[in-house]
Nucleic acid binder design. Structure first.
Length: 887
RNA sequence: GCGUUCUUAGCUCAGUUGGUUAGAGCGCCACGUUGACAUCGUGGAGGUCGGCAGUUCGAAUCUGCCAGAACGCACCA
């Protein structure tokens, strides 16, 4: 073949070439057939998002899993797609419109949706293109978007179905209000952060007195405007005199009752609690209980409403400042203390959440979540690592109802139609026509017309659509053929932070609508952090652009860098050095192949073969190492220890194949031609290595695979057969013998290094060994790797005077170094070894001298200690013997 | 506050049911280049396994307490 091989590996051209090739030949496309399926659905990124390091990690792992499965003979299907990310996308569109001078409120719903779709079409799918750069072997023909027509239909049908089953209801509750996005949020979308705030002590005058006051403590003085009671503990003797009295809210002079409830902690603050039922969940409960008035003093955007009487239109935080100074001026501010408390912030907009009483739609979770809890706890669905089962259980056992309505336009509009102002004056239906029919029936008013119906303005939480993902990507609510084949899927790869948002809910939907788990395994990735331990994020600006990294190190290098230090569930402190290591590995592989290629003879045809030379220990050893690695990698994949699997492959290629096998396969003289059969075997082994490497580094492995031989499209590496472990190659005796030879070589290198003897200097080498025959039969290995003048191996070889020595197992190695030897150094070397063994024996003897150890430990363990003692003492004796020569 | 998981070499991590004077990669130090690769090779130095008790013949591994970290849940204004 003798193709021209570039001296340096150039990832970018290679990667684009093979990715196009794979797509062209539809190697990633799957249709149901007789094979067993292996399915992964991608965690859909935001449609207008761009690739960040978390995506790189997550999708690399998925690609490794799916490529391995594809090669292992499964019908592998990795379904890609995006979600519509209601809040995030709407916020982006609103901002863009604002920049153009357009206010959302000036647009109709339809006009806004047109802008939103335009935005989506313009920015949508960028991230999918970026995934291709990474090498993701998705079935792109299956690309799904959560707002596709069919997908949307399944979301709406699910809502209707759950409503009809009584699992969805509409209700007024305290919700988490995002004053920036102007929408309700679910509990999961609120992040509590500890903040340095202040505790303000404010005095309220007791009604009907001139100078009697009570003092409350609050962190939110602006809510004073909405106070409708003061609450004290009935057992608090300090305030018995206040029972039945009233107090006056400062600034607005509203008279409010003083109520009694043992909810109030007498120890905290002053023991007097101001009650604002419209703006605090606990206050709201108190309000219900005591029949208090609820005064909502805040507009949706966080400004003070008319109900606040003063500060109207001011932002809540500006109003707070003014209220404090006004309170101070009027002498009602008693004191201010520093105080640490936790404040909820919106996950998306990062503004402080406003607890707010609001009419919203809810999913009743308790019953729905039962099978989802049970089947994770009993390992029907396996979490990797399993520690996350605890977190999951805790959440599921205390699951609260899910607020699914959002006051946004971008998303799936709630299919509820209102015909009146009453709380129950609505119907839920798939279309206006159906709604009308239902409404007529419900009201008994046959004259009701379409104009009398008004559809709910709100949309559904994005997660209410993505929880159907494993079903709806196969159109599984309407057509059974594909979903029955691909569902349940095999692996889900995602971040632990969306365990509740998404994983738990997909499991719930899976049991509700398929009566089966959506995926067998959930692999939780770690978080990609920077050197300071901070999560990499766009807002912090501490994340490299993955595409820059791919350009610099190649996708293979980046993939390997991400995987190499990432055990499942553990965070990854990212360092570009890891990618550099990946690209160095690429170059190493490249040059190993380049070496073979340079030794191919023009016009000769080579046939890669694994029919090794049975008389060659090195061939047998290398095959044993390959098969040991196949076995180990297989086990690692079963346990989702991908980094362990990669390390094994890395070491096999670099340490075993490059450092030893290739060195020993080289012709004796540089000018000698490479033996054809040897070349065939080396290429055959290289093929095995590329197969094992492919899931991790798909591009360079395919490139070399295609260099090794001309391949038809269906013979591409990505669809070739995964190597199968064969015990007949896994000969431990060969491995042991080779390891001893490696030990000898290593000892000779060590002697040279410490004695300052050049690698080219020819040595006289003698060995005393019990396995002299085996070693003599393979002495060519030693003479090939070391400059050796003469080699004598026997069972009764005597140590020459003035020689440096080493022990390899029980065997003794001597190198006479007359004239070259540094006696002091040699004595030092031997003494170092003596010290080591003496320390070792001390421990062993200690154990054996302990009667209870000998009595209680298993026989095999005791026997092992005795062997250690015997071997150690023998070594010691030999070393002391050697030392005598120098004294 | 409650719960979970962690703490092993300078860094990032392995260490399977307690039984090899604790392993890897990177980094560090020394030496090395008539060609596969300096994006390399060879050799070397680094750890009383967070602390203290305990169980055991024997603990990095099991138990308890303490210190520190991360995550989850709840939350008193």
């Amino acid at each position: 073949m003798n193709k021209e091989i570039p001296a340096q590996y150039n990832p970018s051209t290679v990667e684009d070439k093979w990715y196009s090739y794979w797509l062209e030949h539809k190697h990633f496309h799957s249709t149901p057939d007789d094979r067993e399926p292996f399915t992964i659905v991608i965690p859909p990124p935001n449609v207008t998002g761009v690739l960040h390091m978390g995506h790189v990690l997550n999708n690399t792992i998925q690609d490794v899993l799916i490529r391995k499965a594809r090669m292992s003979g499964f019908n592998a299907c990795w379904v890609p797609g995006t979600d519509h990310a209601s809040i995030a996308t709407e916020a982006k569109v609103v901002r863009k419109l604002r920049e153009e001078g357009i206010k959302k409120r000036d647009l109709t719903r339809n006009e806004f949706m047109e802008h939103a779709w335009e935005w989506t079409h313009k920015h949508g799918g960028i991230i999918l293109k970026q995934l291709k750069k990474l090498g993701a072997s998705c079935d792109w023909e299956r690309t799904t978007f959560t707002m596709d027509d069919k997908y949307s239909e399944s979301v709406i049908d699910t809502f209707i179905d759950l409503f009809n089953k009584g699992k969805i209801y509409r209700g007024a509750r305290m919700i988490n209000w995002d004053p920036a996005a102007l929408t309700a949020l679910s509990d999961e979308e609120v992040i509590y952060k500890e903040v340095d705030s202040k505790l303000y002590y404010v005095r309220y005058q007791i009604s009907g007195t001139e100078d009697e006051y009570l003092t409350i403590a609050t962190t939110r003085p602006e809510t004073i405007l909405g106070d409708t009671a003061i609450c004290i503990n009935p057992n608090d003797t300090r305030y018995t005199h206040l029972h039945g009295k009233k107090a006056v809210v400062p600034l607005i002079e509203r008279e409010i009752p003083i109520i009694l409830d043992d909810y109030v902690d007498m120890e905290f603050g002053t023991g007097c609690l101001k009650v604002t039922p419209a703006h605090d969940e606990n206050d709201n409960i108190l309000g219900e209980k005591h029949g208090l008035e609820t005064i909502d003093i805040m507009n949706p955007d966080g400004t003070i409403s008319e109900a606040g009487q003063r500060y109207i239109g001011q932002d809540r935080f500006d109003a707070r400042k003014d209220i404090i100074s006004d309170l101070e001026e009027s002498g009602n501010l008693v004191k201010i203390e520093d105080y640490k408390n936790k404040v909820g912030y919106s996950e998306r907009t990062d503004v402080a959440i406003e607890p707010r009483l609001s009419l919203q739609w809810w999913v009743s979770m308790k019953e729905l979540s039962e099978p989802a809890l049970e089947n994770v706890m009993n390992d029907t669905i396996r979490f990797h690592p399993p520690k996350f089962k605890n977190t999951y259980r805790h959440w599921m056992e205390n699951v609260r109802d899910w607020c699914i309505s959002r006051q946004l336009w971008w998303g799936h509009r709630i299919p509820a139609y209102y015909y009146g102002e009453g709380e129950h004056d609505f119907v839920v239906a798939k279309s206006l026509e159906e709604a009308l029919e239902l409404a007529r029936k419900k009201t008994g008013n046959a004259d009701l017309s379409a104009d009398d119906l008004k559809q709910d303005e709100d949309v559904l939480d994005t997660w209410f659509s993505s929880w159907l993902w494993p079903i709806s990507v196969f159109d599984g609510f309407y057509i059974k053929e594909e979903v029955d084949y691909y569902y349940p899927t095999n692996d889900l790869v995602t971040a632990p932070e969306i365990m509740f948002f998404w994983v738990a809910r997909m499991i719930i939907a899976g049991y509700e609508y398929r009566d089966e788990f959506p995926f067998r395994n959930v692999y939780y990735t770690g978080i990609v952090r920077d050197k300071l331990g901070r999560k990499m994020s766009k807002s912090l600006g501490n994340s490299p652009d993955p595409l820059d990294l791919i350009e610099q190190y190649g996708a293979d290098g980046v993939r390997m860098g991400m995987l190499f230090a990432t055990p499942a569930g553990n965070d990854l402190p990212f360092d570009v050095k890891l990618c550099e290591q990946g690209s160095k590995f690429s170059n190493k592989i490249w040059n190993a192949f380049r070496f073979l290629s340079m030794n191919m003879i023009d016009g000769e045809t080579y046939t890669p073969s694994t029919e090794i030379d049975e008389n060659n220990l090195v061939d047998r050893w290398m095959m044993a190492r390959i098969h040991q690695t196949i076995k180990g990698v297989e086990e690692d994949f079963k346990g989702y220890r991908l980094n362990d699997a990669l390390k094994k492959v890395y070491s096999l290629i670099w340490d075993d194949f490059c450092d030893w096998y290739i060195e020993l396969a080289k012709p004796d003289n540089y000018s000698d031609p490479f033996d054809k059969q040897k070349m065939n075997v080396a290429l055959g082994m290289f093929e095995q290595l590329m197969k094992l490497l492919h899931p991790f580094m798909p591009f360079i492995s395919e490139e070399i695979w295609q260099y090794i031989n001309d391949r038809k499209p269906e013979e591409a590496l990505c669809v070739s057969d995964w190597p199968v472990y064969d015990a007949k190659y896994d000969n431990q005796e060969d491995v042991d013998l080779f390891v001893e030879i490696q030990g000898i070589v290593s000892s000779l290198r060590n002697i040279r290094a410490e004695m300052g003897v050049s690698p080219k200097e020819e040595l006289e080498v003698l060995m005393k060994s019990d396995r002299a025959d085996s070693l003599n039969a393979n002495s060519w290995i030693l003479t090939k790797l070391q400059s050796i003048r003469s080699l004598t191996i026997g069972s009764d070889v005597q140590k020459p005077k003035a020689s440096s020595s080493a022990l390899i197992g029980k065997d003794e190695l001597y190198v006479p170094l007359e004239g070259l030897i540094d006696v002091e150094k040699e004595i030092e070397r031997i003494n170092k070894e003596i010290n080591r063994i003496e320390g070792f024996l001390k421990g062993v003897n200690g154990k054996l001298a302990n009667a209870s150890f000998v009595q209680n430990a298993p026989d095999a363990v005791v026997e092992n200690e005795r062997n250690k003692k015997r071997d150690g003492e023998a070594k010691l004796e030999k070393l002391r013997e050697q030392l005598k020569d120098f004294k």
